[in-house]
Simulated scan of single mutants.
Amino acid sequence: MEPAAGDAVDVEPGTVRPGGRTARVREAVLRAAGDALVEQGFDRLDLADVARRAEVGKTTVYRRWSTAAGLVADLLTEMAEQSVPRADTGSLDEDLRSNARLVVRTLTDPRQGPLFTAVVAAATCDARTAGALHRFYAVRIEEWAGCVDAAVARGDLPPGTDAREVIRAVSAPLYYRLLASGDPLDETVADRAAEAAAVAARAGVYVR
């Protein structure tokens, strides 16, 4: 039987996929939480305000998510699940370019860019949010690592290449521009990051 609105949930947020009305409530609350994060940042994220934005009962939000960190953890779970699947072009260079361009599109999106910035900022001061952010990126890196493994299987990269390190090398300079230097992010920058990672991988830099 579907739990009634406001029932306590004794599991980590994001570990149960609700259905029916519960799913609709979760969707509304997570969208409202994202809006609030973009507008106000993590330090001002208030569950009562999120409930008001989502037009759901305050008790429902408090009982299901308990804290702002729990809410952000569930939001990151949702973002990981909704992310675009990896490219599979049969070319390492094209796959890495697709990955880099996807990262740039996300980070420059009017909503997603500020949302990621807010979540990363929150993770620096909240252990639970940091854990959720680490899980989010682990899911995305694992997804895209397949294109590197395929390149190894084709003989395009040396045996023993660490696929996850290659994917991290693609996105690291892009996040640096977003969070540290403030330099422009565009497709040219994306393509350069992808090419640098591919060249390094072919040279054996990422062989374990």
Results as ranks from 00 to 15, higher is better:
residue 165 E to W: 08
residue 140 R to Q: 12
residue 156 D to H: 08
residue 114 P to W: 07
residue 63 R to W: 05
residue 17 R to Y: 09
residue 116 F to E: 06
residue 173 P to S: 03
residue 121 A to Q: 15
residue 89 T to Q: 14
residue 33 A to L: 04
residue 152 V to H: 03
residue 65 W to H: 04
residue 106 T to M: 03
residue 101 R to M: 02
residue 64 R to T: 13
residue 130 A to K: 12
residue 4 A to S: 09
residue 90 G to A: 01
residue 72 V to G: 00
residue 175 Y to T: 10
residue 97 R to M: 02
residue 191 D to Q: 11
residue 124 T to C: 03
residue 56 V to M: 01
residue 73 A to C: 04
residue 122 A to W: 11
residue 115 L to I: 10
residue 131 G to P: 05
residue 32 A to E: 07
residue 132 A to H: 07
residue 6 G to W: 12
residue 48 A to P: 04
residue 1 M to E: 03
residue 160 G to C: 03
residue 60 T to H: 05
residue 170 V to C: 02
residue 84 V to T: 14
residue 73 A to R: 15
residue 127 A to W: 11
residue 207 V to R: 14
residue 95 D to G: 04
residue 84 V to Y: 08
residue 157 L to C: 05
residue 4 A to K: 15
residue 54 A to I: 02
residue 107 L to R: 08
residue 143 E to W: 09
residue 144 W to A: 02
residue 197 A to P: 01
residue 96 L to K: 04
residue 146 G to D: 07
residue 117 T to A: 11
residue 90 G to T: 12
residue 186 D to L: 05
residue 180 A to L: 15
residue 141 I to H: 09
residue 110 P to N: 02
residue 57 G to R: 10
residue 159 P to S: 12
residue 195 E to H: 13
residue 96 L to Q: 10
residue 160 G to E: 06
residue 146 G to I: 08
residue 26 R to H: 11
residue 75 L to N: 00
residue 152 V to W: 07
residue 130 A to G: 05
residue 158 P to T: 05
residue 124 T to M: 02
residue 12 E to A: 06
residue 22 T to G: 12
residue 113 G to E: 06
residue 82 Q to K: 14
residue 135 R to S: 12
residue 181 S to A: 04
residue 172 A to Y: 05
residue 199 V to L: 08
residue 33 A to K: 10
residue 129 T to D: 02
residue 19 G to I: 13
residue 29 V to G: 00
residue 9 V to N: 04
residue 48 A to I: 15
residue 169 A to Y: 09
residue 85 P to H: 14
residue 121 A to F: 09
residue 26 R to S: 08
residue 62 Y to D: 03
residue 201 A to V: 04
residue 24 R to E: 15
residue 117 T to F: 06
residue 162 D to L: 05
residue 124 T to K: 10
residue 207 V to H: 01
residue 107 L to T: 00
residue 4 A to I: 06
residue 146 G to A: 10
residue 63 R to D: 03
residue 4 A to G: 12
residue 183 D to T: 15
residue 95 D to R: 12
residue 66 S to Q: 15
residue 93 D to G: 06
residue 133 L to P: 00
residue 120 V to E: 02
residue 2 E to R: 14
residue 128 R to V: 11
residue 157 L to W: 08
residue 160 G to W: 08
residue 51 A to Q: 08
residue 159 P to N: 11
residue 96 L to I: 05
residue 112 Q to H: 15
residue 197 A to W: 03
residue 128 R to W: 06
residue 136 F to C: 03
residue 115 L to E: 11
residue 113 G to R: 07
residue 54 A to F: 08
residue 129 T to L: 06
